[in-house]
Design a protein around this nucleic acid. Structure first.
Lengths: 150, 150
DNA sequence: GTTATAATTTAGAATAGATATAAAGTAATA
DNA sequence: TATTACTTTATATCTATTCTAAATTATAAC
């Protein structure tokens, strides 16, 4: 809900590497931008924001990179906020997103109570959780089985 | 997660009326379809499903109706599940949505623990909550003020 | 350092979910 | 039944996202 510090920018590169991603200027810039903001930007927003810094950046790269980051579990998709665009968040700690249905802003709300729900949900549902927001992302039991066989 | 009964179809009409919406066959059909399913359909899905029953139905009507239902608080937008389309749910009780990042299905998970979070979030954030899912939809304080003045 | 190669970026075209528009139809009220 | 505002419809349009093919580049091996 505030300009609270999110994460250490210096570790952005190492975290990308640790995830098995090649270290390109585009990826570093996109991931760093996400880590440094609380505003849950869309792909378009990131593209516009990084234009000055990376004039050759293409929209496809932003989308590709975001997809890679989500797959590696470095950022979470928040989904759309009624504005028809997907929002992204690099804050992986369990927290509530408050989505304004009028102006489409997304605020954060941290509450210890919510952390306790994670284990319960995971255990009883059979999902493998990939995040803990007010929407839980994960693989359903059927998909876990299919992935294991491939 | 199961074929659990959702709501009484007979009350679909009265609930539409109580919300101040005109009673058209299209609206009744769309709202009833949402109330009767656990599958969190998209606008497109609803359109296809209702084709046999209402051959003249247009996509715009589905979108218009869903928007009206959301505005009146009769259904919730779940947002997209990684498939680029917005999903809808007529189950207004607080519950977790489990979104599979692979096959994009959305399951439900009810937990009493979550109900307790509502009041806390509402009180401390200043939002007026319109729903309680793992994403909370509502109006932010700024929007509440603006709406009050118009 | 070079080189090889597989991943990545790029620009632009293509796709598809969602919205806007204007005309025709219809529910609700008196 | 007549009126009127609200709805529906079909079509055109918008725009977020994905796809494609060619050019580029990060990484590892030499």
């Amino acid at each position: 809900m505030s300009g609270k510090k999110r994460s250490t920018p210096e570790r952005v590169a190492e975290r990308l590497k640790a995830a098995g991603l090649r270290l390109t200027p585009q990826r570093v810039a996109i991931y760093r931008a996400l880590v440094q903001t609380d505003s849950h930007p869309t792909a378009q927003r990131l593209y516009e924001q990084l234009q000055p810094e990376l004039p050759s950046l293409s929209q496809a790269t932003v989308y590709n990179t975001l997809q890679a980051l989500v797959e590696k579990g470095l950022v979470h998709e928040i989904g759309d906020a009624g504005d028809g665009a997907v929002h992204y968040d690099a804050d992986l700690a369990p927290h509530v997103n408050l989505v304004c249905t009028r102006c489409h802003r997304i605020d954060d709300f941290h509450a210890d109570l919510l952390a306790k729900a994670d284990d319960l949900v995971a255990a009883e549902s059979g999902y493998r959780l990939q995040g803990a927001r007010l929407v839980y992302y994960g693989l359903c039991p059927a998909c876990q089985a299919e992935v294991a066989h491939s």
